[in-house]
Design a protein around this nucleic acid. Structure first.
Lengths: 356, 356
DNA sequence: GTTAGCACTCAATCAAGGTGAGTGCTAACT
DNA sequence: AGTTAGCACTCACCTTGATTGAGTGCTAAC
């Protein structure tokens, strides 16, 4: 016995209904609500077949049927194939996501916010990452006697800054001179490379050994740990309204996942070059995500770095909606970061980008 | 009838027991577990009095008694008076809170983490704020053609940065010259003040009207919205293990509060100059916090700015522990920020501070 | 003033029975 | 051969009622 067209249509109806209600679906419901022109008995036979084929599960004998992960997989694959769903939410996303902010973090926060309100699920947005950033400019700004702010502008537009301290006093002009020297020597290099050549540079620049040692220490630390990236999350509380989270155990699971940002990031992060990933239930291989689906998309920056945006929800997720919204958001982030200044947002207050 | 010493001791026992078990406390429990040398009947009489005095509530007639907000208030006041509890957790806090980080945000994140693990409640840490920061130094760092990073170093050590764009090309040296001029003119001023005099400065500096307009726009925006401060939160998932959060409704309340960081901040933020605040249940005046207590403490920076750290938990909170931990943490943050560089953490890798 | 004793209350627990949604199977129908 | 009506069966869920036990308030004796 194989999957024929009628079986598929019935399966689809079951999935649709289950996504809507979160209740096991009975044969009578399908026969009546989705008029297939078939009696419940016939549906019943087909459902029995579908169960045998592994597309349906039965919580217990006198309950309706529930779609299996395999069913969702089929459903989603079919959705993606026909590809009609894209861009349905394009405009709504544009309307809510202004991207009008100066800091990268604000932007991804806002993106997560929009994603979660539009989908009603948990949204995660990871900042761009990828190949190591290349130094463009180093600037030392006097803060107080004996301390300076190090600003490193990289090609990704991400600015890393910290205060270092040194002995003695250096004038603003001296610091500028050192900055220029450092920029000269180090621009075009990645952070680890810069760290390597720093001693040599230090010799050449000469008499500020102390300051350069501090700088070196800072770079070294950064190399090891990296700045832990800011992971934006939205919609946690919204998830709790879903019936699947009336179970405390699951809520706790979800919450501790959300709290462990780095773990969350590693779960969501998408490798490879596909535009989309849909991982349904156990496909993710993550034990506590058995009942969740993870849909991710990517966006990219002008410098070729890649970021991930993702939505986590129950397996009975509104896949069409989620995929459509993610797709639009991915596109818009790509647009937003697709410009030379790297940092986001129209610094001037022009409104062009929305229509470009 | 008034509160006498015996009544007080009984009340204390009830509170202690309720804090421990979260179950209504019966007369027999008090008589046996806390040997008062009194029979349950006597305790019962006293409890009846205590109820009449408003210190105890009875969920229903055949249940034990539960301390009222008034009881906790008395209990806490008494704790604070005797003041013996301070510094009990000093060492543990020191051990877990290294404060070893370059970014302010990392530090307050870590502080929230430590607070929540040590108390098992929800911890909130607000960055220092207070009088408006005064500009010390302005620096424009070239990022790409037509765009520059604005770094403003303020006396609070907090660095605000953003990329602005302008027409045309300016060399690194030109930008430096402008930076110097701006620093000259604007240092010592607050942001709003700077915004006011900027047009004038613009005239004097001359031919870079476009850039200065961008800068002015940026400052104006900042003035309005301010950079939304980073509010660190820790221990959300830990709260769910408490029996009072087996109710979904409450969990949702808590969660949406945690998600609305600004609201959370306004709840926790402590005004006035007291070292401590303990708000018990309805005292906070916040409807959804009726069953919660909020304990806050402050820390301050060398520049006189003040930050708040707080713990939110059920009214039957372990007040002693919480107060002690908050106290130690506040002290340590004050120490940490009590130095000229404002930005935190030993930039060098010396270990001195832990013993200073 | 303290305590033992007793009647009383009431949430919580559990078993028993009823209900209804849903199934699987069979036999009749097209 | 596919479809459908009918029927027996299953089982989660709800209701009901009885039981239990923690806890109280009151009274009378110490």
């Amino acid at each position: 016995m194989a999957m024929d067209d009628r079986k598929f249509r019935i399966l689809q109806a079951i999935i649709d209904d289950y996504i809507l209600t979160a209740e096991p679906v009975g044969s009578r419901t399908i026969s009546k609500k989705y008029d297939m022109g078939l009696s419940s008995a016939t549906i019943r036979n087909e459902m029995s077949d579908l169960e045998e084929l592994g597309y349906l599960d039965q919580p217990h004998v006198s309950a309706g049927r529930v779609p299996s992960a395999k069913a969702y997989r089929l459903y989603v694959d079919q959705l993606l194939e026909q590809g009609t769903l894209r861009n349905l939410d394009e405009e709504t996303v544009r309307a809510h996501f202004t991207g009008r902010a100066h800091q990268m973090e604000d932007i991804i926060d806002q993106a997560a916010q929009v994603l979660s309100t539009m989908t009603n699920y948990l949204a995660v947005v990871l900042p761009p990452s990828g190949r190591p950033p290349v130094i463009r400019n180093i600037q030392l700004v006097p803060v107080a006697t004996g301390s300076a702010l190090v600003v490193i502008v990289t090609d990704t537009g991400i600015v890393r800054d910290t205060v270092i301290r040194y002995n003695g006093q250096l004038s603003s002009d001296t610091l500028y001179a050192i900055s220029q020297a450092l920029t000269q020597e180090l621009s075009g290099k990645t952070l680890p490379e810069a760290l390597e050549v720093l001693p040599e540079v230090s010799r050449r620049v000469g008499d500020n050994a102390d300051l350069l040692r501090s700088l070196s220490g800072f770079l070294g630390e950064r190399k090891e740990k990296g700045r832990k990236p800011h992971v934006a999350v939205g919609g946690t509380s919204r998830m709790l309204t879903l019936p699947e989270y009336s179970d405390m155990e699951r809520v706790r699971n979800l919450l501790s996942l959300v709290e462990a940002r780095d773990r969350l990031a590693s779960i969501v992060r998408q490798n490879g070059n596909v535009q989309f990933t849909v991982r349904i239930g156990p496909e993710s291989g993550i034990p506590e995500m058995e009942n969740c689906s993870i849909v991710t998309a990517t966006y990219s920056t002008y410098s070729g770095q890649q970021g991930t945006i993702g939505v986590i929800g129950p397996t009975r997720m509104q896949y069409q909606k989620v995929i459509s919204v993610l797709s639009s958001m991915g596109q818009q982030l790509t647009e937003l970061f697709g410009h030379e200044d790297g940092h986001a947002g129209p610094g001037d207050s022009s409104d062009e980008r929305r229509h470009s």
